[in-house]
Write a protein that binds this DNA or RNA. Structure first.
Lengths: 196, 196, 196, 196
DNA sequence: GATGAATGAGCCTTCATTCAT
DNA sequence: AATGAATGAAGGCTCATTCAT
């Protein structure tokens, strides 16, 4: 069993889905990009939906892992938050194709999207955990709104990176130092959450 | 010329588009909900795309107006920011259908979506303006990252409200006081932007 | 609303379904034969299945009506049975396309086929009624097996006609007097049912 | 050369074909039920069609043999007819899966189906032979319609049994004495053919 | 202004068959 | 002998759009 084939399909699928969104993405295009016959996709995945879900789960898992590791590399909650921030921004900026999917295909009531949101919750909880540990060592008035705060931070980061990605696409270049600009922008905003 | 007919179509379209997203929304359904023949829609709009764009422009205009008025009702930048925040949160929470569209249909490279992003820029610039006025009165290191900060704030607010909307839908109720919770959560985060 | 279009589709569908059976029949072919766009079929019928069922119901209704009228034209049970026999044989022989469907698409457990069988039951009950009236006037040992007898008669007639139809197709001609041969063959067999 | 493998495929194929009919039957399902890889089927049979034909021939052969033996066990034509009747009814009732195929896959103009009909002709000729011998001993007006009569008898028996099978499936039980009921029903009908 | 029947390109999915191992 | 991954032609169904009335 060529694990390779599945890999090819996976890679092609991320690209096509990201370029066109779930609805407009054509199985034909995915097959073509993967250099595989259309039937081959259906040999490995039950259908478009399943392929997408598999993709998202795998993507979110990788993403969350990277962010989690960057977080756990530090002890101090403030450092953790900064590590998390940098990891998330960097990852999303360098996986623009995934970043677009992240914000465009989550919303909606279909199962697929609900499953997606469930995976995002893991990430939000990661943020929440850091905030909680940060808040323990000091007094925090928002102790009971940690979850909401984590969501807001998640949104701030995601939207900021996405907007930078579109900016870069318009100018047809990805500047490395834009990451630093985003970090400088987001850090004060977000780290305020530990001080309140 | 019945302006009424166009109104009916408009109202139906917002609902259908919000329920299903642009791609899944069917002209048939819009026609049915508007109690109009399908051909009638095409008599008034060039096509699905145009109908959607018209909708978005009108929606964004109303939305931006409300937020702008709430901002300009105050003098002090901090009050302005708080006013803007409350207005945006309240509006989005009460126009969940519009809120969903806002975050799900902006991303993508199609003209329609780019046009949409252009309208969002107005809103972001509104935020940016407040930040600028707030920063003028003090020294701010992020003076040159006002735009990025505004985007981040926009994202934080939008995602927070959207997540609350889904939460409410899961529990099948819209609690009024959730707005206060969101405000309490977002205010410290966002207003930090004035203090940095 | 052109009732005509539906008629065209109907006529084309009977032909195609009869030629190829339900499974092999292609919507494309039906559309082509009906000189209608494929979408038009779907505008009038929910799908292949529904089209087929509509067809069958309409076909069986017409068929049963003809047979019923031929039966009720007589008073004496024996005459009724002969009338029924002649009507059924003649109708099936002249509607070979329908006759084929009758025996090839009834068997199977799908809903469609069960619905079909339900319609056949009407016909069988018609036969059963004649047998009952015929049996009342004499003593009949098979009084309690009237239904089974009716089914057997139904089978004898249907299979006989169908075999003649294939015979005719092989020889590429439909001989009118074959009907008389079939009647002469079936009458003694079937009318025996009244005498037992 | 494992004859066993072919046996497994054969057994699985009968089941699947009977459950779904030729068209809906999937090679995948046959392979799965036979606990064999799909390729294996193609190693032993040229394709779906050939597999089915092999099946039908083998099935019809077995069936005809049973019926023939039951017929030849008697001397008197009337006894032969009764023996034939009992054998056919019993066999079909106990091989419901085969019985369904018998009536659903014969009709149609495809080679496969014509080949099938040729095999059925053997059976019909068996009946015809009995009738001829029966008629020899007496005077029979239907002497020249023996073939047609045999076909009618074939149809009466087959349809009756099939209808009983479906009845049994609906009630989810196979009653042994239903066979006697069918025999009691069919005997008078059929044996009349000898007396006319 | 409004209608709704008709259109047909487009897309997802199925499945018999092949073939390298 | 047997396998099962890969294939691709085929077919059912959708839906935005058109147009005669």
């Amino acid at each position: 069993m060529k694990q390779e084939t599945v890999e090819q399909i996976f890679r092609a699928a991320v690209e096509i889905f990201a370029e066109s969104g779930f609805e407009r993405a054509k199985m034909d295009d995915i097959a073509q990009r993967a250099q595989v016959a259309k039937g081959t996709i259906y040999y490995h995945f039950k259908g478009k939906e399943e392929l997408f879900v598999a993709l998202m789960n795998s993507g979110m898992e990788k993403f969350t892992d990277v962010v989690r590791r960057a977080t756990e590399a530090h002890q101090d909650p403030a450092d953790q938050l900064r590590g998390l921030l940098r990891a998330k921004v960097t990852y999303l900026y360098h996986h623009g194709t995934f970043a677009k999917l992240l914000l465009s295909e989550v919303w909606g009531s279909k199962e697929r999207q609900q499953a997606f949101r469930a995976r995002i919750r893991d990430l939000v909880e990661l943020i929440e955990g850091v905030l909680r540990r940060g808040g323990d060592s000091r007094f925090t008035s928002s102790r009971d709104r940690l979850h909401e705060t984590a969501v807001a931070i998640f949104g701030a980061i995601s939207v900021t990176v996405l907007q930078e990605i579109f900016r870069a696409e318009d100018r047809e270049l990805l500047e490395g130092d834009r990451i630093e600009v985003m970090l400088d922008t987001l850090e004060p905003l977000i780290c305020g959450a530990l001080r309140d």
